[in-house]
Nucleic acid binder design. Sequence first.
DNA 1: GATGCGTGGTC
DNA 2: TGACCAAGCAT
Length: 354
Amino acid sequence: MLKAPQTRDPFAGDGFAGAVVEWFVETGRHDLPWRQTADPYAILVSEIMLQQTQVATVLERGYFTRWLERFPDPAALAAAAEPEVLKCWEGLGYYNRARNLQKAARALIEEHGGSFPGELDKIRALPGVGRYTAGAIASIAFGRAAAVVDGNVVRVFARLFDFREAVDTPAAQKRFWEWAERLVPENRPREYNAGLMELGQRVCLRTSPACLACPVADWCAATDPAALPIKNGGPKTVFVTERVLFAVRDGRLLLERESGSRRRGLWKLPALPEDFAGEAPPVMLETKYSITHHRVDLIVQGWAGDPTGLSAGPNPVESEGELAWFDLQTEVPAIAMPSPYRRAVETILARQKA
DNA sequence: GATGCGTGGTC
DNA sequence: TGACCAAGCAT
C-alpha cells in the first residue's frame, strides 16, 4: 500500500477536523434521505435502522422512506400496534430495534411532551439509544459537539493512530472514545461526524484503503493501513440443522409465534422435533441461512396438498410458542416473519403454483 | 465484561 | 465459499 508518511498531528489545532468537514461538504453523500431532513425523529429512525446495517440495505430496500410514510412522527409510532411495527421492520433483523424505537416514541410523547430533547444524556436515556446513537443524534440533529464511535470510526482511528492492538476490547473502545471526544470540533460537528463516518465507508476501506484519495492522509500514522484494525474475532461458526413443518389446511398455513426470544412476536414455520424420523412428512425444501455465528441447514417438511398426516396421531409440532393458522392469501403476507421462513414459504408456494 | 441478536453483502 | 463484516445495544 502506497501511503505518504504522517506530517501533521491530529490534536494540533483544528486542521484535522477542518479537512474532514471540507471533504464532507464537497464530496459527501448529501442526497441520502436522512440528510434531507432536520427532524430529530427522522434522524433517530435512520440511526436505529443503520445500527449494524449497511446504508445500501436501508436505502435501496426503502425501509426509511416507507417507515416515515407509515409513522411520520412519534405520535403515530406510539399509537401503532406492535405487529404492524414489526411488519415494517421485516427483513432488517435485530427486531428489538423496532420495539425499542416504538418505546422511544412513547417516551418522547409521555416524558418529553412530544418534543425531542437536545441534551446528550436525555437522548441517551431513550430505549435502544446507546452511546453511539446518542452522539449521532446530538450532533447531526442538534449540532452539538458530541462524539461518535462506530465501526467506521474505529477503522479510521486505528489507522490514524497506528493502533496495533486488538480493537474489540473494552480497553480499546475506551481509547477510541477518548480520541473521538478530543477531536470532535465545536465548529460544524454535524459535518465532522458525518464526514468521519463516511470517510470510513467510502475511502478508508477495510481491505484496500484509498489513501491517495484521503483528505486526512497527512495526519495518518499508519504504515500498513490494510493490516489495521486488528480484531480478536467472535465465536466460531456453529452448524445446526433446523427442521420445520409446512402444513396447509383449508388454505391456511400453520405458524408458530416465538415467545421468549428476541424474535418475540414474529411468526415462523413450526419446529419439528429432532427425532421425528419414522412418520415424518416428506422434505419439501432444504436451504441454508446464517444467523449470528450459526450456520443453519433449514429443512422444510410437509404435505403439499393433503395434510391428513397432521391430524393423525399426536401433534407433530414441538412448539414453545403459540400456534395459529393464517390465510395464505390475506394474512400470511401481512404478518411479520424472519426472512429465512418468508423466503421458504414463498419458494414453496411459487413451486406449487407452477 | 461476555454474550446474543438478523440480515445481506463482500472477497 | 465460508469467514468476515456493517452508522450497536441490552442484559
